[in-house]
Design a protein around this nucleic acid. Sequence first.
DNA 1: TCATTGATGCGCT
DNA 2: GCGCATCAATGAT
Length: 196
Amino acid sequence: MIISTNFFTQPTLTVARALLGQRLVREVDNLRLSGLIVETEAYIGPTDSANHASKGRTPRTEVMFGPPGRAYVYLIYGMYHMLNIVTEPAGFPAAVLIRAIEPVEGIAAMQANRLTAHSPANLTNGPGKLCQALGLDTSLNNFDVTQGRQLWLEATDTLPDDVVAAGPRVGIGYAAPQDQAAPWRFRIRDNKFGSR
DNA sequence: TCATTGATGCGCT
DNA sequence: GCGCATCAATGAT
């Protein structure tokens, strides 16, 4: 079943935790690429200094202030794209970053998108990698991921708590100490498709 | 550990 | 408008 807007309207930490184990689907040229989400991070509101939107509304962060269930896709380091899903009611800037998936469908096509990946385990085990594997770029920024076309999420079983691990987020050295320390990164314990 | 890479947003004219 | 520092990372070294 396609995950709906109501799901993404929930508190960001709830969404980040609940997305683990759900299926991310990309459809391009009638070909279906998909994987199970194994790692996420939450970016929550104006007081989270790690959040791009904490410095206010700009053209780039406008999407995060918009309705939930939209994709926030941006370019980092001039070469890699990051996929986030906007959460919480419009007006409150928050999103969940999809950091890693376990590839399931369309693995050959993912390989073709990522010629530098020399093993299947390296296809989607990082936020930049999964965007490359799935062919995601800024043309999908602000795209509604609840419509079941091009890019969407499908519900699977909810994971039990004992396989979920929480820890501090990655790559946010510019943020305030308490925000760097916040355990807002979620991953499936012992999953070999997580990022490093 | 280091180079890569270009959009973004800031501070200034 | 223009220049500059900065960056939710990756792959090769």
